[in-house]
Simulated assay, not measured.
Amino acid sequence: MSVVRLPRSIVNQLLQLAQKSPEEEICGLISRDQRGFKKCYPVVNVADDKKHFFALDPKGQIEAIRSMREQGEELGAIFHSHPDSPPLPSLADIEQHEYPGVLYLIISLGKKGVPEMRGYHIHGREAGEVVITLLDDTPQGSSE
């Protein structure tokens, strides 16, 4: 199983976004460069059934990718939440995955509102779970 290091600040942001919208799936992109993951780009979910599906707003997705390129970064991960189911890729998640090699993160609030996040690499119709470790990126002396 591969290991991925995510900055604590990004993980905290993802968990907070999911908790702020417990009735619908949140979604977005995360950038990376050669040193690792850099920035979270929340994108509006434009799916018809936001409780069970996500669809990135095309305009928001284009703006996020443009911003990444301007910063010398690239797409590193796609994230979304499952309001009331485990953080496992659904058949729809696997079928709609269009970026091989990009980390796929799912945040779940299914356990009585306690967030849980898992990561996957999806190749074809196979989803392999990755181990997520936290990279402490909080500034020294910060109370975060």
Rank of each mutant, 00 (worst) to 15 (best):
L29I: 06
I30R: 06
E74A: 14
I65C: 07
L29K: 06
P87C: 08
V130K: 07
K111W: 09
V114S: 12
L88W: 00
P7T: 01
C27M: 05
S90M: 02
I78E: 09
N45R: 05
D33S: 12
A47R: 07
P58H: 00
Y99F: 13
V102N: 04
I122E: 04
V3H: 12
K59W: 04
S85G: 12
E25A: 03
S142N: 06
E116N: 06
N12T: 09
V43W: 07
V131G: 00
S90H: 03
S108M: 04
V102K: 05
H52L: 15
E98Y: 07
R118S: 01
I94A: 02
D49Q: 10
R8P: 00
G60R: 01
S9M: 09
R8N: 08
D84V: 00
F37T: 10
H97F: 09
P115D: 03
M1S: 11
T133F: 11
Y104I: 06
V4K: 09
C27F: 05
Q19T: 07
H97E: 15
A55N: 02
P87G: 00
G72S: 11
K111G: 08
G110M: 03
H121V: 02
E129A: 04
D48N: 14
E70W: 09
V130I: 09
P89H: 02
L14M: 10
E144M: 12
T133Y: 14
P115T: 06
E144N: 15
L56F: 05
T133K: 14
Q71A: 14
I30T: 13
S85A: 14
R69N: 12
K38Q: 13
G28P: 01
K59T: 11
P86V: 15
Q71E: 15
L134F: 15
Y99Q: 12
Q71K: 15
L109F: 00
Q96M: 11
A64P: 01
I106D: 04
K112N: 13
H123Q: 15
I132S: 07
P100G: 06
P139V: 12
P58S: 03
D137E: 11
Q16G: 05
H82F: 05
L15W: 02
R8T: 11
G113N: 01
T138G: 03
R5F: 15
N45L: 09
C40Y: 03
Q140S: 14
D136K: 12
L17I: 05
Q34K: 13
K38Y: 01
S85M: 11
G128I: 08
H97N: 15
V44E: 14
L91P: 01
Y104K: 08
R5W: 12
A127F: 05
V11Q: 08
Q16A: 15
G128E: 15
S2P: 15
R118L: 07
Y41P: 02
L105A: 08
E73F: 03
V43Q: 07
A55S: 14
Q19I: 06
T133S: 12
I132Q: 02
G76D: 15
M68D: 08
V11M: 08
K50S: 10
Q140G: 06
L17K: 01
V11A: 04
L103N: 05
Q71P: 00
S9Q: 05
V46K: 04
C27L: 07
H121W: 08
H97M: 06
S81E: 02
H82G: 01
K111C: 07
D84S: 12
A77Q: 00
R35G: 06
